[in-house]
Amino acid sequence: MADPRTHRLRLWTSATVVGAVALAVLLVPPLVHLDEQAVDLSQKLLPPSWDHPFGTDDVGRDLLLRCVYGLRISLLVGLVAALVATVLGTAVGAAAGALGGWTDRTLMRLVDAFSSVPHLLLGIFVVALFRPGVWPVIASVAVTHWLSTARIVRSEVLSLRTRPHIEAAISGGASRRRVATRHLLPAVLPQAGLAAVLMVPHAMWHESALSFLGLGLPSHQASLGNLVQSARSSLLAGDWWPTLFPGLFLIVPTLAIAGLAGVWRDRLNPRRRSELML
């Protein structure tokens, strides 16, 4: 366990970064009436300056603006995909854990089958089935990321099911539904929520990887993966800014989100919650 000062520092840094990112992606597009697609070949590949703090790309588009738009689309894909994956994983895990027996065995073998295929390969397979766009990418991320949530939720439910407090509820006349909604689900949700938040960075990287391979979003759309992909040739020519800034925009927010999730996990830890051993 980190000492309280490090803990607070981590909380505040992460929260500040995540807050700044949220403000930027929510406010910049509607407030700043600039076209991130505006091409100006006279301005191409300019290094960072006052006019273009992140420089420009090989067709003269402002990189700061494109990074903000890229982060926006990557975050959106990450959040929606993490949500879909969590709902799917929680449903499968809860069903397997609560119903047990034959249902449990079938569902968990299905999870094993999915897990045995490499993530990226499975992800590529899913996007290959559709025309490039946002939804195939979300589907691709969701299909590859619900497995761990299903496992976590199932084991939580299994360990809770024979807990005396569940037995006491049954003995107190609680219906099956009441036990599920009032006793099992609230106990599982914090774990599932944590898994969801931890999944957002994963999902963003997965999207970027797909886009970098040219299999993700359409190449004109400013996703972070696309930005890094299109900057490859400039990097070979010694122009560092088109790669560096999108890269940082991917790394820093994902680290911050993971940092917040880490704080959340510590809070869930019962040893920290009890604070005292008497």
Partner: peptide, 18 residues
Amino acid sequence: GCGKSVLASALLGLLPAN
């Protein structure tokens, strides 16, 4: 809860940071 386990932890230097 009368403090006897805390006393034992104190003798072993195993008390929490606070």
